[in-house]
Amino acid sequence: MEDSRIVELYWQRDETAITESENKYGRLCFSIANNILRNQEDAKECVNDTWLGAWNAMPPHRPEILSTFLGKITRRLSLRKWRARTAEKRGGGGLEISIEELEECIPSGQRIDEGLETAELAEIISAFLETLPQEDRRVFLRRYWYFDSIRDISQRFGFGLSKVKMMLKRTRDKLLVCLQKEEIWI
């Protein structure tokens, strides 16, 4: 079913929208959740809650790209669950490593300006990503948006492990410079 039709079903409060979303994007959402949580039960729970989030969000939302809209909900829910789990010192999952990597992008000795809205920072990062070569951008997002493992990325794009690591390192360095230039004190 076309995305626009699925969105229309949500607006009509037709529960078929949820079945169709699950059929079309359940796998995508599960992979995002499972990459973050590395626990199938928790991941399934986040995916199920994704449909609830979508149901509550449409209306008023009318997303242009349904897959990323649903993926964003899954990502938020999964991160929230992961953070709660970490707070309970039950961490686990593959997220710690990618978080450590991301911290390299944060200018040292400072922390992200609390007053800066996430949306503003997202705009800056989007603009930064648009300046990158397509391959670098894709690899960066696979790692830090989809939370793919280095191995999965190398298989997806047909690169060696070391090349993927090197691409990510270079991009993180560039992002650090970008944030410093934008005077995003982190």
Binding site: K72, L116, I124, I186
Partner: peptide
């Protein structure tokens, strides 16, 4: 916050990576 901000980047970029 950086992690959250990456989560909110443009849809077109996310889709392209997928």
């Amino acid at each position: 916050k950086l992690q959250d901000a990456i989560g909110e980047v443009k849809d077109s970029l996310i889709l392209d990576a997928d």
